[in-house]
């Protein structure tokens, strides 16, 4: 069984992101600081929806949703262990109740996903979610 496990692991390890090129909690904090630019941030009831078991890190379904009763102008997502902290910045032209954005992201490793919702008054709500990735986002021999 170990031999067989190795072939999968070997194939998957082929073209992984070098561990040096990674965001860190510090680079995420810096990216968030730039976005927030001194405005108020509160921890809030944002929903970050990621499957409990990620089957392939190449495309992980991710949905960020603001609470139904709240109007939002933008949703922002960051990660800690991808090569860079930014994931997406989604902007609604008008304050939107029950704002939500669904996409698919690459996750190089198990890590924390950070989401911020920007409210019409310029303040932010923030939430975090931990994601467990069993197979990292790498590429097999493409032949």
């Amino acid at each position: 069984m170990t031999a067989r496990r190795q072939f999968l692991a070997g194939a998957l390890a082929l073209a992984c992101v070098p561990s040096a090129a990674r965001a860190t909690p510090e680079t995420v904090a810096e990216a968030v600081r730039q976005l927030v630019a001194g405005r108020q941030v509160r921890d809030g009831a944002l929903t970050i929806d990621v499957p409990p078991l990620v089957e392939n890190g190449n495309a992980v379904p991710l949905t960020v949703a603001a609470p139904a009763g709240l109007s939002v102008v933008a949703l922002h997502v960051f990660t800690e262990k991808n090569p860079q902290p930014h994931v997406l910045h989604a902007r609604f032209a008008a304050p939107t109740p029950a704002a939500r954005v669904a996409t698919r992201v690459k996750l190089a490793d198990s890590q924390t996903v950070l989401a911020l919702a920007e409210l019409p008054d310029g303040t932010f709500l923030r939430a975090r979610a931990d994601v467990i990735v069993t197979l990292a986002a790498c590429i097999e021999d493409p032949t």
Binding site: L88, A93, V101, T103
Partner: peptide, 24 residues
């Protein structure tokens, strides 16, 4: 012609990008 929604993407968005959102 009037923009209603926009999203800035990073390299972390998966190949063949999928984006869904609500609208009125």
């Amino acid at each position: 012609g009037a923009e209603l929604f926009a999203m800035e993407m990073s390299p972390a968005i998966a190949a063949n990008p999928y984006v869904a959102f609500p609208m009125t």
